[in-house]
Design a binder for these strands. Structure first.
Lengths: 211, 211
DNA sequence: GTTAGCATGTAAGGAGTTACATGATTTT
DNA sequence: AAAATCATGTAACTCCTTACATGCTAAC
């Protein structure tokens, strides 16, 4: 048991590090800010939150505290605001520093990149370069397989492969640009290993429709 | 129970329609020909094959028959060659004709496209156009969400969103080209609703390394 | 007055992976 | 003689979704 998905855990800790939130809002942020790459349903989010509380990384705050003058919190089913504990912060920073091969696989890379603002520069570099070499490996295999089977494939299969390869090549070019601009950044201003979070204030009561 | 995944079932039926194969070879074809989009392990393939046999769509042929002069089939753990039955063919064609919204979702579109060679032109059109409008919906949402939150996001999150949107836009352009060339094809030669399979012969004993 | 949004949750299930078990054959 | 590849399979597990249950408020 129970609901410690890696990606979801990471994203929840990361979002709550920026500011406390309740589940419903959290899910929307998950599916927009980070959401082109992964969408989560309540069925995975709520149990995950429970588990993170159990681990001591999150603390629940039932709607008693003041916190927000807007949102009268009368009526409206009492919402549970989750806040990152000190242990939770440690846990998240631990996860941020991990550069195992997992970090640049498809399922993880997007969410890792989304929190690059909180990530140290050398870890950013390792993740970007790891991702790039993963993709280049993949390209090599695709090219080899194409060379072997080209004449046997029909038009559509071929077109699918071609488009797939171009997508990967495009991501490699993107990574190249990112890596270069990280290097330039290092050469110019050399302070700041851990970026200060831009500190989002003016937390609007949210407005999003999911489908 | 038990292993009727949709995608995997479809791909297996489709590949076996072209020619009988045993599981091991099937898996390699799955992970190269159709493989940029999805990879399968034996742990899902073999149970799926069993299930398809149970349904009467595949027939097992243990290595008794002649079939292949190469591959002496001495030694080498007896391999089970799977062949599509008449019911299996019907089933596959049934699946080919389906144009429910599933057909253009991320998980299905790739594999549907891979078998466009066997698909009738009007179904091809519906799938391509369905995919396109699905992506345009997604773009609209992304643009809306970006407009709302742009100034609140840090550089990396913004860059991630931008890159994500460009990827989707690029796929839309690709679909536009495909749709247009389908239309041109229709205007010129108007025969051929169901394409003849290019009939792969010279089945090489396969050579692939997966990682 | 009904649809849409807000808000939290649970149970069951789907789709797949990993790790293991087994064993022969070819290549290094 | 070790490593890779061929070949088939199972059990346990992971991660996530769907569908349901509940109930309130705002807008159309």
């Amino acid at each position: 048991m129970s609901r410690r998905s890696g990606v979801l855990e990471f994203a929840v800790l990361g979002l709550l590090r920026e500011s406390p939130m309740h589940g419903y809002e959290l899910r929307k942020r998950l599916n927009t800010s980070l959401g082109v790459f992964r969408a989560f349903s309540y069925g995975s989010l709520y149990p995950c939150l429970k588990e993170l509380v159990r681990q001591g990384w999150l603390a629940e705050e039932t709607g008693s505290g003041a916190e927000d003058s807007r949102a009268p919190l009368a009526g409206r089913r009492a919402r549970i605001v989750y806040r990152l504990t000190a242990e939770g912060k440690e846990r998240f920073e631990e996860l941020l520093d991990q550069t195992g091969p997992d970090a640049w696989e498809d399922e993880h890379f997007g969410v890792r990149f989304a929190f690059f603002g909180q990530t140290s520069r050398d870890v950013r570099m390792r993740v970007l370069e790891g991702r790039r070499s993963r993709l280049e490996e993949r390209l090599a295999k695709m090219r080899a397989s194409l060379a072997r089977t080209r004449e046997k494939l029909d038009t559509y299969t071929l077109e699918l492969q071609r488009h797939g390869m171009e997508s990967v090549e495009r991501e490699v070019r993107w990574l190249n640009e990112l890596i270069e601009s990280e290097r330039e950044g290092r050469d110019r201003n050399d302070q700041r290993g851990r970026g200060a979070t831009p500190e989002r204030d003016e937390r609007s009561p949210s407005d999003e429709n999911d489908n």
